[in-house]
Design a protein around this nucleic acid. Sequence first.
DNA 1: CTGAAAGCGCTAACAT
DNA 2: ATGTTAGCGCTTTCAG
Lengths: 343, 343
Amino acid sequence: MADVAERAGVSASTVSRTLRGLATVSPEVRARVEQAARELNFAVSRQAASLVTGKTGVVAVLVPTLNSWFIGSAVSALGPELRTAGMDVLVYVTPEMTERADFFERLPARRNADALLVFCFDLTAEEKARLDDLEMPVVYVSQHAEGCPSVYVDDVAGACRGTQHLLNLGHRRIAFVQSVGASGFAFSSNERVAGYQQALTRAGVPLDDDLVVATPVDDKRSIAEAIGELLSLWEPPTAIFAEHDELASWVIWTLRKARVEVPERISVLGFDDHPIAEWSDLSTVAQSPEDIGRAAGELARSLIDDPDADPGRHIVLPTRLIPRASTVPLRNGGAEGAEGGAG
Amino acid sequence: MADVAERAGVSASTVSRTLRGLATVSPEVRARVEQAARELNFAVSRQAASLVTGKTGVVAVLVPTLNSWFIGSAVSALGPELRTAGMDVLVYVTPEMTERADFFERLPARRNADALLVFCFDLTAEEKARLDDLEMPVVYVSQHAEGCPSVYVDDVAGACRGTQHLLNLGHRRIAFVQSVGASGFAFSSNERVAGYQQALTRAGVPLDDDLVVATPVDDKRSIAEAIGELLSLWEPPTAIFAEHDELASWVIWTLRKARVEVPERISVLGFDDHPIAEWSDLSTVAQSPEDIGRAAGELARSLIDDPDADPGRHIVLPTRLIPRASTVPLRNGGAEGAEGGAG
DNA sequence: CTGAAAGCGCTAACAT
DNA sequence: ATGTTAGCGCTTTCAG
């Protein structure tokens, strides 16, 4: 910076003021400084700046992976959102338990970021406690955290809406396939079941525990078994609501493999509006990870700028039903109908 | 840090030495210091440390988006790889041209990272020049850059291998569907066409420009038109090699919609081994973005640690053919065959 | 093996 | 509107 100052014939303070866009610099000097900075290929050292300002200009993001439609989209939207505020995004990818433990052990974000965004983690109580001690805003994304700022979609309302869609199509035997194991989404998972049950109850359809099955997403065998449970019920379902689109796609795949026509014999509804939903022509309850990412970024910024802001602020985003080809009206009042019956 | 020093009854220097794991600290003192640090929830400020060491402990990553199977996977693998070396990952997401321009205008990575990884960008000459002036290692991922360290798969060999697979199945009229517009992958795109042509030439199959069509991935209409061109040729193809799996999936979707059976009438081969390939039972030429990410991380580290290392080092990763259900032997020597013919 | 002192590059008062 | 000065929190000589 001294070099720039010398070249522009001013003091370091003036260079600093210019480069930070403070108004108290004469246009003529500003021009000289900017020119000199450009010529010297100069960029301010955040490290040094943050040392004195106390602000790092960095928002840390803790994620299990980036290789996920939801997280990838959300973080992608977060970047530009924060960039406009001059902030950078630091990602801590902790796919393994050991890496995650290491993160909490060393808390590297502690003084190296102005805020932390925690994505999709089912945290232990101890981990949660450490985050509470972090002395910086922590925003929870896609999960609740009592008394902590968080951003998530209204899973209950979304699942409720999806279920209502199936009810409106005449279905009464509606199954719910829940995913297990893929840690990090347990919160949404439970909420979605709750929404499903809520819609049924509201419609006066009795709940039937046999209609709710759970399976890991990445195990075709388990998915087949879960579907098998449903197909072997005395009154099998005429519609299946899957916790998310990827699972829904495998459900369809499994059903079709078993020569159960979708949607003629069984309607299938997903949740997320994952790209695969469009590809599979899957009806779904859409959420927007981009909106979530942006909202999380905004929330983080507002908490950084105004530490006195309500720390318990929750941002709940809406969902939208997207009807496609995988959900159709119930025909013949049962599971035996194929093509041909009039609506 | 002064607090920790006081609590442990030592000087700041000793705390620093302890926390950096230098061997020159007596075990007894080390224990005291570590205890004090833990109790005070202390974490070293990278900002302050880097000010004096000149190392930021940060690797910057420039990506168009994270919402991409390839980039998401690669960056996800990169994180843990660098974490073991105590480095953090800073992502610059520049989906829009304006954001990208802003990045190059301000070069925020300049003194705020020890290395820069550039993912999947078709850079202009001017942008390339600015990166050359950056005075830090710049690693190009999934693209060549003359004289610069880069990591990519052998697209030519992969496409060659894929084409050979189709040739081995008896196909001679093999089309190639190239994607256009989705900036950032132009390099691979051209390489793959080259590999396709190379395999054909080697097998003595004459090249036919009519068999190479291009379309944007995200425009079904254009895809349909591209397929239409192929289906209306005097000698239509019996196999289609798509530049990547997502495109291949849409090709299949388009063909099936037009009642052209895949693979009975036309075999389809993809490239990448994107998750959708497994879902679509698509034969494909696999690459591993995780391996690419890890290799890029290693390369970046070696360049940081040893600035005199060969700056023109290229790491070229292999591909593997994964045969699935979308490619079958040619039957009846032409395009009219459906089920039934003996091999 | 440990402590004292100097200074990394920058910003924030204060002074002009 | 611009220059001067004093640290920010750490690491690194250099002494002991």
